[in-house]
Every structure is written in C-alpha cells, then in structure tokens.
C-alpha cells in the first residue's frame, strides 16, 4: 500500500545511516528481564568487535539487574533480526552481518529474571 496524496509523495527516511556520522543504531533485547522496559537503543561503531559490544556496552547497560553479574552473554543464545545467529566474538559488527538498525535478541536460558515473571 502507499500513501494517498495530492502530489508525488516522496521523502527521505529520517534515520538513514548517513545521518549518524559514521556510527550506526543497534537494538538489544534481553528477554525475561523487563526491568529494562524495552530493548536498548544503542549508538555503536560498525567496526567494533562483538566482544567489545558485549563487554563495553551491553554489560554496563544491564549491570543494574541482579542477573547481570552471572550472565555470560557470549555463550548465550542469540537472534539477529529474529533469525538464529552465532556471533564471532572477535569479528566486527559489520563482519557479523549486523547492519544499521538491526536488532539482537539475547536469551540466557538459566537466567529468567525476577519473581518468576521475567522481570
């Protein structure tokens, strides 16, 4: 479907990767940890390693959750844009196939959040 308009209605997408000055957007969702109300929206360098993403960004972002200290994200189960995904820890985000506005979902099977209700 497309917009019903009086003229040829064509505009640029507001969030194209060029607008982020060499950086890109990445979303990270940790299911069963709804203490963080929504997936994180992160500004990341495309050439950073996956390990650096986990150690320098995801770990600090999740640190306030009691499960965080025990979470071994590198050994956890990952989805990239809802598809099964095995990250290469030393490769860059780009080489891992993680493009602008991708979403990573990381499940830690033995850590299910608080109170048995995924908080």
């Amino acid at each position: 479907m497309s917009v019903n308009a009086l003229y040829d209605y064509k505009f640029e997408a507001k969030d194209k990767v060029e607008n982020f000055h060499g950086m890109q957007l990445l979303y990270v969702y940790w299911p069963d940890h709804l203490m963080f109300c929504a997936p994180f929206a992160l500004l990341v360098q495309p050439d950073m390693s996956f390990r650096a993403l986990v150690d320098d960004i995801i770990k600090p972002a999740t640190a306030s959750h009691p499960d965080s200290a025990r979470a071994d994200f590198l050994k956890a189960q990952w989805l990239l844009n809802d598809e099964p995904f095995t990250p290469n820890a030393e490769a860059s985000l780009t080489d891992n196939g993680i493009d602008h506005k991708s979403m990573l979902t990381v499940t830690t099977p033995d850590l299910k959040g608080m109170a048995g209700v995924g908080y």
Partner: peptide, 30 residues
Amino acid sequence: NNTLPQLCQVCQVPTLFTEMGAPTKLSHRQ
C-alpha cells in the same frame, strides 16, 4: 535506566508492550 529505549516508528512509545495472553513477552515487530 541509563540506556535509551527503542521507540515504535508509528506511535513513538518505547516498544514496551507485551503480547496478548503472554505478558512477559514484548510484542515487538520489525
């Protein structure tokens, strides 16, 4: 929470809502 949330492209609320009948699972779509 010191990290910014993902927002819905249409309603612009953080993508915090859950699936009908599954209140611990986010109803995210892309």
